[in-house]
Design a protein around this nucleic acid. Structure first.
Lengths: 130, 130
DNA sequence: ACCGAAATGAAAACGGTTTTCATTCTCAAA
DNA sequence: TTTGAGAATGAAAACCGTTTTCATTTCGGT
C-alpha cells in the first residue's frame, strides 16, 4: 500500500484543522479555506479529513445534530474531550479510572470488543463573560 | 400550552418504541409500523419521536454515522448506555462517581452549564455466539 | 352535529455527505 | 528533462436522513 501523494490541497486541509483549537466540520474547514483564497473543492476537504481520521491524526466527534466534526489530536492514545458549546474550544482529558470503569461495566454485562465515548460540553470561562 | 391531542398515530409510535429493547431510528420505527400494516406517515413518526424526546420519555443518541436514534427511558434521571453494536440491545448504567468526575473536571477548567455523554459500545453475549 | 384548529401525510425541499467521471497533477522511470 | 501511469481533484449529480409545506383529516369542545 503506497502512501498517499503529497498534494497542495492535502497540506492546506491539514494545516487548517491543525490551526483550529476546537472541533471543525468539513463545511467549516472548506469555508475557512475558501475565505483565505484557497482553490480547493469541498469533496477534497471531506476526503482529506477522512484520510487524516483514518490515520489517527484527527479525532472525530459526531455532534447531536448529526454533523461530523474533526479535531487535531494533541495527545497520543485514547482520550476524551471537554468542549465549549459556544466557541468550540476543546481540551483533551484523560482519566484511567473512567476507562477501567467502562471496560469493567461492559465485561460484567458480558460484552466484548468494547469501545466508549465520553464527551463533556459546557460554556468556557471566556464565553461566560458578558 | 394545551397538551397534545391523543391520536391513533401517537399511540402507535409510542408503543413501537416502548416495545423495542434498544435504540431505534425514525426510519426503523416507520418501517416496523408499516410492516405491521399501520397507516402512518414517516413525517408523523419523526414528529412523535421528537415530541416524546422533548417530554423526556425517550433518550436520544446520535450515532457515529449521524443518524439520530431513540429509546424509551427505563429509569428516571440521568444515565448512560451500554449498547450492542450488532443487535442494538441496550442496558442503562449509572455511576455517580463518573458524574462527579465529569462535573469536577469541567469546573476545574472553568466551565459552567456542564453536560456530558457517556456511551459504551460492544458486542453482547448473544451476538458473540457463532 | 358543527366547527376551529391541531394533527396528518405526501410531496417537495433541505443540507450534509458521497459518488461519478472528466480533467489535472504527482512522482517514478527512462 | 520528458513521459506517462494512475492517484488526486473538483464540480455536478446523487444519496439519504430529516424537515418544511400545504391540502386534507381528525380531535375534542360546545
Amino acid at each position: 500500500m503506497a502512501p498517499p501523494r503529497s498534494t497542495r490541497q492535502g497540506l492546506l486541509v491539514e494545516e487548517a484543522v491543525r490551526g483550529a483549537d476546537g472541533f471543525r466540520t468539513a463545511q467549516d474547514v472548506y469555508a475557512s479555506l475558501v475565505a483565505d483564497g484557497a482553490r480547493i473543492g469541498l469533496t477534497t476537504v471531506y476526503r482529506h479529513l477522512q484520510r487524516l481520521a483514518d490515520q489517527g491524526v484527527l479525532d472525530v466527534l459526531t455532534a447531536a445534530d448529526g454533523q461530523i466534526a474533526y479535531r487535531s489530536c494533541h495527545s497520543d492514545g485514547h482520550h476524551h474531550h471537554l468542549v465549549c458549546r459556544q466557541c468550540g474550544m476543546t481540551l483533551e482529558i484523560h482519566e484511567p479510572s473512567v476507562e477501567q470503569w467502562a471496560d469493567r461495566t461492559a465485561e460484567l454485562a458480558g460484552f466484548t470488543d468494547v469501545t466508549h465515548t465520553v464527551e463533556i460540553f459546557g460554556t468556557c470561562a471566556t464565553c461566560r463573560q458578558p
